[in-house]
Each structure stands twice: as structure tokens, then as C-alpha cells.
Amino acid sequence: MKRSIGAGLCLLVLSACGQAVSDDPFVTAVNSIRGGLFNRDTGGGAAFTATRDSLRESGITNPVMITRVPARDIAVGLIDYQRNRGVTVWRSTDGATISTAGGVLLNTRGFGTDLHSLESAPVEAALLSGGPAEYSRVFRAIDGEGALQRARLFCQLAPVGPERIDVLGRAYDTRHFRETCTADGTDGPLFENDYWRGPDGTIWKSRQWAGPELGYLELERVIN
């Protein structure tokens, strides 16, 4: 069932793409390399095939967030589209977006059953301080009836250690942090997020929970 919804969504988004006849330079630029930048599974598993060179040749100078949603077989490059009071909105050609603050995922839009919002400020602060931390985050979702529901999650952030990672062919020295969140009435953790933080505080890579439907998003930040 989940699979068929994913496929339906995929078809829908692709057809929306086909109609995106626009003179918006953003769309034009992205369309020119869509084959590499915008991939959804067609049977063999989704892969992100654009390279730093192909991005440069297409004139994409904005930062790109490579976003993989394994539960939906999506691998897509989202482009830095808008900055709004410390929040970066990353957008695909078909209008799907994710928002991050300090590299921490805040919401998704256009991925089906989206992450409505997950408070990011406590994690941002903990990542900046760099040490182990305990805090709470508020998770909000809209239920099947259309009502807003809230749940408070109790989280711990712990450093894992230094790690050298690769993002689209470029190596970064990072510190790896793991965040474990639990909810009242649930045994064991609800999710475990991983963040790879550079020396200047940039989150170059992360694996973050986006709600029970989307599961984990794998994010990699590309700056050319």
C-alpha cells in the first residue's frame, strides 16, 4: 500500500514537472540537468547522479541539498531557494521543499504525508555547544481528521567522534553527533538522528527523522 502511494505520488510529481513550462531562470537551470538532479525510483533504486561539474555547467551556484528519502525511493537535489529569519528553504523543480535551521530539519512540504514541523532550536543550540546535551523538542502533525496534534519528545545529543566524510567528491573533517529522542508511552527511542558538523558549525551531512510516514531523510549539503 505504502509502495503504491509512493508510486502514485511519483507519477503525479513527474507529470507536474512536465507542465512546468516557465521562464523562471531557476526552473530553466534546474530543468537543464534534471536527469541528474531529480531522480525518483523507476525500478532500479533512486540515485543522485549530478556531479559538481554538471551543477557548475548548468549555472547552479546556489547551495544544493541532496535529499534522499529511502522510504519513498526518492533522491533529489533541492536548491537553496529562500532565507527566512534563519531558516533556509530548499526547493525542487516541482515545488517540493524542506526547511532547515542551522542544518536541522524543520519541515517538509510536497513529499506526501509531510513532516508538519519538528522544533529545531534546541538541537541547533546543542550542536553549536558541541557537548552532550539533554533537551526537548515539540513534534507537530496534522492527523487524518485534519486536526493539529502535538507531542513532546525528550532528546539527548552525544558526540560520537571525529570523522572524515565525503560529499559529492569533496572531503570534510567533521565531528559526528548522535541524537536520540523518545516519546512518552513508547519503549525505546522513537528515532536516532546523525549529524556531521564541520569546524565552522556547518552541518555537511545528516540523517534526520521526518515523521512516521517519511521515515529518515539523508541530507548532504553541496556548496560549489
Binding site: 502511494i5 528553504v89 526547493r91 515545488g95 521543499t97 512540504r109 492527523d143 487524518g144
Partner: peptide, 21 residues
């Protein structure tokens, strides 16, 4: 059935996109 459990999850396409600043 339950009114709170839709047969298909609500699709909000086309996505409205972030508000123009």
C-alpha cells in the same frame, strides 16, 4: 471505517510553495 482514517492520505498538490518575501 473511521472518519479520522482517510482511505488516501490528503494530497496537497500543487504544493503552495513558501510565501513570497
Amino acid at each position: 471505517f473511521n472518519p479520522r482514517r482517510p482511505l488516501s492520505p490528503m494530497n496537497h498538490q500543487p504544493n503552495p510553495g513558501p510565501i513570497a518575501l
